[in-house]
Amino acid sequence: MSPFFFGTSRRRLFGVYHPAQTSRATAKAVVLCYPWGHEYINAHRSMVKLAGVLAEGGYHVLRFDYFGTGDSGGEAVDVTLKGCREDILTAAEELLDMSGGESVSLVGLRLGAALAAEVAVAERGLVDRLVLWDPVISGPDHVEAMFRAAANMPNGMGPPPLRAPEKGGGHEICGFPLTDTQRDQIAGVDLIRLVPKLPRKSVTLVTQPAPAHERYLEAVGDAGAQGERFLRITDRAAWHEDWPRNAGMMPVDVINRIGAWMA
């Protein structure tokens, strides 16, 4: 794997390129779209593993940090969903350029899945395959879940604190700032609305039950999808903290299923 910075000097992005380990008739490329906030920290090692599995399956893979996250430039309060979507496009262009790939697929986890879906719908024709792994389906539900997670951390620390206005305001959610602007943007996520417009080769994998799943499943059914487009898998949540190890667990079955579906 090759770690590097890309993007512009004003918006430097950190990425890791995993070249395909086996050759295919046509070069294919996959951009991994990370979750956000504490879920990113916990899920990172699962995404590394997934990148390796896909590279072994013959895909050129780029995983990268959105601006204001991970090793990329910017601060956490700088993150906007619009910026994240632009970063996905920048990453896709970078990967196609690096790999000589002719098409790009997106695999997103949690908020990253919602972002990937939005990009796939907005840039019709660009995205070959789309994998939505435990996607955020309803923005308002996700905001509520974030506040619930922050209030119920394993060490039981109570309601999320308010942040000072001079620091961008909002709340602290499990160690990360969530400004009011960011909260409003996340609350605007509506994956069900996008279902009819998703690329034909799309799949959703869920490991954890969520209230929005039934409505989402209905929408997938209404869109005339095949059964394979929504897979319930009994496995661990990559983005959950395994306390007190303070790290995420690796759902090997999900990762292998994604690898198999992409193949």
Binding site: I41, G70, D71, F176, N246
Partner: peptide, 15 residues
């Protein structure tokens, strides 16, 4: 590193 968390650190603290 802290445990198996990558170099960014919890809450992006190392950055």
């Amino acid at each position: 590193n802290t445990g198996i968390i990558h170099r960014v650190g919890h809450h992006r603290m190392n950055v």
